[in-house]
Every structure is written in C-alpha cells, then in structure tokens.
Amino acid sequence: MQNIKEELLLKLKEVKNLSDLNDVRVLFLGKKGKIQEKMSLMSTLSNEEKKSFGQEINLLKEEITNLIEELKFSLEQKELSEKLSKDKIDISLPGTKIVKGSKHPLNKVIEEVEELFISMGYDVVTGPEIEKDLYNFEKLNLPKDHPARDAQDSFYLTEEYLLRTQTSPVQARTMENNLEKGPIRIICPGKVYRRDNDDATHSHQFHQIEGLVIDENISLAHLKGTLEVFAKRMFGNEREIRFRPSFFPFTEPSIEVDVSCFKCNSKGCSICKNTGWIEILGAGMVHPNVLLAGGYDPNKYKGFAFGMGPERIAMLKYGISDIRHFYSNDIRFLNDFNRIEGGVDSED
C-alpha cells in the first residue's frame, strides 16, 4: 500500500498538465488501475482480513483521489490564468463612439417649461405662424394705427396676413374657439418673426412661450404665485421674483418680471448688470378689450397672461452670448446639449 502512495507522489511530480494528470488518474483509479488491482485481491482473503484490508484500501483510494483533485484544481487555475493572460488588451485605448444625437437647446428649454406648466394643469396649444392681422393685433387690443405695432415691425404677406410677431394670437384663437366660454389654462410655444437685422442679440426669427389663465376670481397675486413656482423650478429654489409696472396693449395692469440673479445670487454681476435682477418675462392681467374680443364677459371672468423668450432663457441658463448660435446649428454647439443636467445632488 505504502508503495502505491509513494509511486503516486513520484508520478504526480512529473505531471505538467491536466492530460498528464488524467493519465495518472487512470493508472491509479481507473477500471484497470492499481487500486482496482488491489481490490481484486479481496476475494482471496478471509472475512476478517477482508474487513481491515477493505478499510485500508478505501482510505488509500480516498487519499489518492484527494491528491489528484487538489492537483487538478491548481492545474485548472494555472491553465485559466495562462489563457486569460493571452487575452490582455490595452484598456486605455478609446471606446467605439456610440451614435448619439441631441435635442436642440431651444427645444430643451421649451419642453422644460411645457412640462412644468403641464404639471400645473395647463394644456399645450399651438397656432399658425402665418397669422391674420385680426388675431395677431386687432383682437389683442392693437387696432390699426396703434403705435405699439411699430415696435414689432412685421413681415406682411398680404394686407390681411403676416408672420405672427408674438404667440399671443393663440390666446385670441383659444378664447374664440372655447364655445362654452369657460375657464382656460394654456401655454403656447412657437416661432415668431420680427423685422430685426440678425446680430448677436437680435434675430428675425425667434421663439416665444405664452401662458394664459382665464377663470373667475383670478388676480395679480395668482400671477405672482404662478411665476414664483416657474422661477424656482427653472432657475433654482432660492430664486425670488420682482414685479415692475410696464405697458403692453393686451394687459392691464402690465408687469415686467425680474428674477433674482442666479449667476451671482443677487450680489451683482455682469449678467444682471450689477442690479441683482434679470428681466425674464412680460406679464399682466388680460385687458378687458381682449376678453371681450374673445367673447368673454370681463365682469365675470378675469385672467392673467405671461410671455417669455426661450432664446433669452437658454442664453442666460447656458451662458450663450450670441443668439445666432441657435440657428447656425454648429454640431459642436449642438453636442454640448446631449446630456441631462442631472444628479440627485446637482445644482437644480
């Protein structure tokens, strides 16, 4: 018995790989192996001898099996690691660029605003860009010859039709189309056009987002509350808003809305021209003439309206200094907007 073990140890020393080991296994544990050879001697023994011999040989078998398994495991490990080491690559080489597009920054801003107002129950409504003078001006308390028409010098196509200078005509259309003359809560994004020469801060084509709420008992305080939510959501929770009196023909009272500067936290910087405030929207209570033109009774219904420029918001938010970037569509510019501004802990 001892000889068998010693012989095994000698053989195992010579084993180089799994196939050598298999040979050794067959030699000792195989059907015609040395253990089996010993077992065949059993029949020649007495019952008593059988018992002790049997125990002895079983022990030896177990021992041999263990030795072979041990070596097998370590050989397998070795072979695997040899195999893996052949797979070595330079992980620092660049990855394959995954094809990925980007949302236009203006649409990013518009959708952000839309989603915010949708969550407050506003419907998103659109209207034609080639608009009737009637809706673009007259129904908005801007009769022919009104001097404020000059300020938004327009592209006329005929005497009757022009490229809308504002998204407000959608208000007029929505009021008119609402046959029950009940409450309205809408937001109207879209392209508008004015006769401006294109430069860093002017564009003959730009976007507006208009909001309109009509209901009984609507007041300026509701406008302020609504825009406070908007300012905090768009520009951060610490933002405050300020109302300044202004003038628009379609609202009375009219308001210019400033948001506390989100770049310097109102300390004063170049963005807010050291005032701590940034002008961000025009707003006001819907003028009774506009309500009347839309078929609403100004004694029963009141409303507020507000309008903002996505270009301006995007320029402030992302630090873009030239409005022409939005329309020249340089891919490097566009690719700057192909990610979310996320992270649970990010500046919101």
Binding site: G101, S102, K103, H104, L106, N107, E129, F155, L163, K191, Y193, H204, Q205, F326, Y327, N329, I331, L334, N335, N338
Partner: peptide, 8 residues
C-alpha cells in the same frame, strides 16, 4: 442632432 433653421 436636432437643428432649427430659418423659415424664410
């Protein structure tokens, strides 16, 4: 990449 160009 989404672009926006002039209508005119």
């Amino acid at each position: 990449n989404q672009v926006i160009t002039y209508s005119l």
